[in-house]
Design a binder for these strands. Structure first.
Length: 658
DNA sequence: CAGTGAGCGAGCTTCCGCTTGACTT
């Protein structure tokens, strides 16, 4: 009998379906050895020697692997084909005491029979350079986290945390908040003209159309206030209108790639209002039920066999005009993608969400439907639009103005047949019916409308936009996007209000401290630079110890200096209007503790009054009893709106009232 | 399910990334 070791127990089951009785398959369930939790576990004096321990929660898995290995003739290490997977393989070899030459490391990027058979026929050795790159990553993260956090305990408050990923994520949110604070809206005006083709004498019912003023005497026009707007409007009222140019063209809209973890999380948030946590929980169950491929991936690749099945399905269900001549391929833009797995797709394209209703919960069903549509659509033909651009010239006594009208009409739906893009729906506004006009046609002005507008402040991050930003900067991995978001909320660094992230005073204080003293580490490019170094280790160009040393030496010096020099920082509190009911002298202030916000007396420690904090919503009253609406949290931490007269009035809602 | 903050200085907190399953509603 041969033993194959993989990471996920679901993979075990899938593999055993492909392979015969002569193979036994066991799962490590992720990493099995790691640095100790309670201490640094790195000897910085001795080349950063890491101290690895068996992970206590993996005892069972490790025991199984050990037992099976004794019976096995041959052992294949089939952990994921990436940096972390190579490291897991290394540690499995270590605990099984396999000699270097006896190792059979195999890799496959898709779980299909030919891929596995090919892998089994081509065993390799463990790539020790790749293992070293993982080790450097692990050691660096430990050094940053376990050195910076205690400094925060001393300088700000006990129990705080800092790290390469979480700290820069908080920084994104704090920086965005500052941009919003300092943003000054600027006034500008848009001028829209309603026009109709002029037909000498005869009355004909031709459609009118709207055109937006864009240029004055060949230059882009900017109208800053009402006076300017009025001037232009007056001039345009008396102007002569004629068609300057008409451009019609066909444009192709290509399908979007199948889901990776980050795009799945972003889309499920937008379309289904799922948090990233909820998305991953539902995806996990779909994966375990064998309905989708692995859900933690950064790849857009699909197994060739799966694509072939999708093409057959598309051809027989929708017809050949929906089937491209050749399969569609998608490349990831990300430099840090490791592409160890396929993109997320249904394991069997013939199986639609409605076919397996009984097997699925409601959330699983909705998510499966989304995954199915996105994957199938990715292999369909482009949509074709007829796009029309009409340029109208308005000639007044003094100036020549240019107005623009754009519209598009769908000619062939292609992939949009099954995967409507939400953004598309808003574009329908521009899909107005455009009249048949040609260059030189005279037009009549029907109406002219100036519209006052203001520039908008950048929006606060949502879970979706935050994950997008992290992925673009190469920060975090598919397995960590959802946990990062939980961590920074759990630490009370940020809070989510109406789906948007706001920094708390605590988060802002910690961020400003780190930016002041450890600018390099909370730099947006820190992770990208680290990845470049890790690549050099993986390629054998550099050794891991000097890479870590180059980082650690200046970092240690900085730590020492800041420990001595930096003053203890106060976390600012928000003072409310209310007086302290206990001492009747102080004001109530909002503080952030372990469990979130609470009210206490400004005269602490002289007065130790505390009370739970409830956030009242301004300008809204309870629709049932007229009491105040307060923001509450369920035991699980999900936010909802309730009545302040609870339990006398039990009105509650997930959405913000009115 | 109560409790949270400071400092007293007992013993404690903390990272990122890989994987599920133990709980509860």
């Amino acid at each position: 009998m041969n033993l194959i070791i993989v990471e996920s127990p679901t993979k075990c089951r899938t593999l055993s379906r492909f392979l015969g009785k002569e193979y036994k398959i066991e799962a490590t369930m992720g990493h099995i050895r790691d640095l100790p939790k309670k201490k640094l576990g790195i000897d910085v004096e001795k080349d950063f020697r890491p101290q690895y321990l068996l992970l206590p929660q993996k005892k069972e898995a490790i025991k199984k692997i050990k037992d099976e290995s004794k019976k096995a003739k041959k052992i294949f290490l089939a952990t994921d084909p990436d940096r972390e997977g190579e490291s897991i393989a290394f540690h499995v070899a270590y605990i099984l005491k396999i000699k270097k030459d006896g190792v059979s490391r195999i890799v496959f990027h898709e779980i299909t029979k030919p891929a596995i058979e090919k892998a089994l026929a081509n065993p390799k050795k463990i790539d020790l350079d790749l293992v070293d790159a993982q080790q450097a990553r692990r050691v660096l993260d430990r050094l940053v986290g376990y050195k910076l956090s205690p400094l925060l305990w001393r300088k700000i408050r006990r129990g705080l945390s800092a790290g390469r990923v979480q700290s820069v994520t908080v920084r994104l949110i704090v920086d965005r908040e500052r941009e919003i604070e300092k943003f000054v809206p600027e006034e500008f005006w848009e001028i829209w003209a309603k026009l109709k083709k002029h037909i000498g004498g005869k009355r004909e019912d031709l459609p009118s159309f709207l055109a937006k003023l864009v240029k004055k005497n060949g230059k882009v026009i900017k109208i800053e206030d009402e006076t300017q707007a009025k001037q232009v409007v007056d001039e345009l009222k008396k102007a002569n209108y004629e068609i300057y140019q008409v451009e019609r063209k066909e444009i192709k809209q290509h399908p979007v790639p199948p889901f990776s973890t980050s795009t799945l999380q972003q889309t499920a948030a937008r379309r289904l209002s799922f948090s990233s946590k909820r998305t991953m929980y539902a995806a996990q169950r779909l994966y375990e039920k064998g309905l989708i491929t692995y859900h933690r991936t950064d790849s857009f690749n699909l197994a060739i066999a799966a694509v072939e099945k999708m093409r057959q399905y598309i051809n027989s269900t929708y017809g050949k005009q929906y089937l491209p001549e050749k399969p569609n391929f998608y490349k990831t833009k990300s430099k840090v993608a490791q592409e160890a797995h396929e993109a997320i797709r249904p394991t069997d394209v013939r199986c639609q969400a409605s076919d397996i209703q009984e097997k699925l919960g409601r959330e699983e069903q909705r998510l499966y439907d989304l995954i199915w549509k996105r994957a199938v659509a990715s292999q369909m033909t482009p949509a074709i639009w007829d796009k029309t651009k009409i340029e109208t010239q308005a000639t007044s006594a003094k100036n020549i103005y240019l107005l623009l009208t754009e519209g598009k009409i769908i000619k062939f739906d292609g992939w949009l047949k099954i995967y409507r893009v939400k953004e598309q729906e808003s574009e329908r506004v521009g899909e107005m019916e455009l009249p048949e006009v040609k260059k030189g046609d005279d037009l009549n002005l029907i109406k002219i409308t100036p519209k006052q507008k203001f520039t908008q402040a950048p929006p606060r991050y949502t879970e979706a936009s935050l994950i997008k930003a992290l992925e673009e900067k190469g920060i975090g991995r598919p397995s960590t996007y959802a946990p990062i978001i939980s961590t920074i909320q759990g630490r009370q660094y940020v809070e989510k209000m109406e789906n948007q992230f706001h920094p708390t005073p605590l988060g802002t204080t910690v961020n400003d401290f780190l930016v002041e003293y450890f600018a390099e580490i909370v730099d947006y490019d820190f992770t990208a630079k680290m990845e470049d170094n890790l690549d050099e280790i993986a390629n054998g160009k550099r050794k891991w110890v000097p890479v870590v040393k180059d980082f650690y030496q200046p970092f240690a010096k900085q730590l020492e200096g800041v420990t001595k020099v930096a003053e203890r920082v106060q976390v600012p509190t928000e003072v409310t209007e209310e007086k302290c009911p206990q001492c009747k002298q102080g004001r109530l202030v909002i503080r952030i503790g372990k469990f979130g916000k609470f009210l206490s007396c400004s005269r602490f420690p002289e007065c130790d009054y505390t009370a739970p904090h409830v956030a009242k919503l301004k300008g809204v009253k309870c629709p049932e009893c007229g009491g105040d609406v307060v923001i509450k949290k369920t035991r699980k931490g999900k936010q909802f709106y309730g009545c302040s007269n609870y339990p006398d009035c039990n009105w509650a809602s997930w959405r913000k009232p009115k």
